[in-house]
């Protein structure tokens, strides 16, 4: 099962290394990871994507909780959370093909971020699934380079307040 975990950490040197090391050491695999600032300058947010059993997820959460720099750990269940990702893709686009590509892109609200003689760069924001479909659509045109940020997530404004499971044990 894939899970998204939202982690608030103190913005201190080594905080990310400690989390990454804990995953590596306990044999958990990180599928994607996005780190960035939050509304508080002393706090960073990490969105982690892991593929593991529910039981491992519980271990991950508890082990992360013990890290001194970790302030909050929360699973983001798909139906209670909003997840977005940014993709940049450089696609081969000889002048004759450009119009076709751009019209495909419009469906996904993709923006043309840069235009060269024989290639262009699209910028797309969406759910990770949307980005995957977009990627498939432009692939036949020839992807020269592609980067994705990894997903970021927040519990929905309408969702019940979390965390829950850990509260029982602590």
């Amino acid at each position: 099962m894939r899970h998204t975990v939202s982690v608030m950490v103190e913005n201190k040197p080594g905080a990310l290394a400690r989390i990454a090391s804990m995953f590596a050491r306990r044999g958990f695999n990180i599928e994607s990871l996005a780190v960035g600032p939050t509304e508080r300058p002393d706090v960073s947010h990490i969105t982690l994507r892991v593929d593991c059993s529910d039981r491992s997820l519980e271990q991950i959460q508890k082990q992360m909780h013990k890290l001194v720099n970790v302030l909050r750990v929360q699973e983001l269940p798909p139906d209670e959370a909003l997840e977005r990702e940014l993709l940049l893709v450089k696609v081969a686009a000889p002048p004759g093909k450009r119009a076709e590509l751009i019209s495909v892109a419009e469906v996904f609200n993709a923006r043309v971020a840069d235009l060269g003689a024989d290639a262009l760069i699209f910028e797309v924001v969406g759910t990770p699934e949307e980005l995957a479909s977009f990627e498939e659509l432009v692939r036949p045109h020839g992807i020269k380079e592609l980067v994705r940020t990894g997903r970021v997530g927040l519990a929905r404004a309408s969702a019940r307040p979390a965390p829950r499971r850990l509260a029982v044990l602590r």
Binding site: R55, Q59, K62, L169
Partner: peptide, 14 residues
Amino acid sequence: DAAEIGKLRHADVP
């Protein structure tokens, strides 16, 4: 340590 609960053996009452 909450992380020891259920790490290896299920706890009926933690």
